[in-house]
Write a protein that binds this DNA or RNA. Sequence first.
DNA 1: GCAGTGATCATA
DNA 2: ATGATCACTGCC
Length: 206
Amino acid sequence: MTGRGIIMPDMTRASQALGAAFFDRPADRVARDLLGQWLVVCGAGGRPQRHLVFETEAYLGAHDLACHGSKGLTKRNATMFGPAGRWYVYLCYGMHWMLNVVTGAEGVPAAVLIRGAGGHEGPGRLTRALGIDRAFDGAVAGPRSGLWFEESGVAVPSRLVERTPRIGVGYAGPWAEKPLRFVVDPRRLSRGTPATRSPRRTRGLH
DNA sequence: GCAGTGATCATA
DNA sequence: ATGATCACTGCC
């Protein structure tokens, strides 16, 4: 972090793909900790594009009435019941692909929805911009699939994390109100944004 | 404020 | 086979 509280990815550190240990935890913890990490997409032969994650939602399991898994195992949501660290992608409203990463123990239908990353705000806009569709469903979130997360090297402090109810789950009774959406202002995560630009680095910190 | 859009799932 | 639903978006 710089002296004025701007969050900067540490470009000097070798980026490391987040793996099973990261995702095999409760979905709300994963959703919180994904803020500020890189979402990396790399098509065949292309250069990797890195997008800082700034908005997520947690879907906790079968007991969570907003979670697809609460209706039981179906063909669509089967990936959610599998092991952590795989992509769960489904079509919403006939038009929009939703990108999730599966969390927690196998057999427990839990996942984190990626709602915003890089310059892309909104889960449907994000997948459209990155070319994500059902081909990723069930794939391991790693370089081999062309889509993965990497450590950015910084932790987003809690004072910058806003928690709100999840979007579009009003049908879920008491679960509609749980603060399981996690947001950090993307301007706090990006280099060179005028509103948050710091003219100089704090001495001694790299 | 609401139409578009079509796969998915429960019901039959 | 049919109808309701839907973790959204864009335009009115």
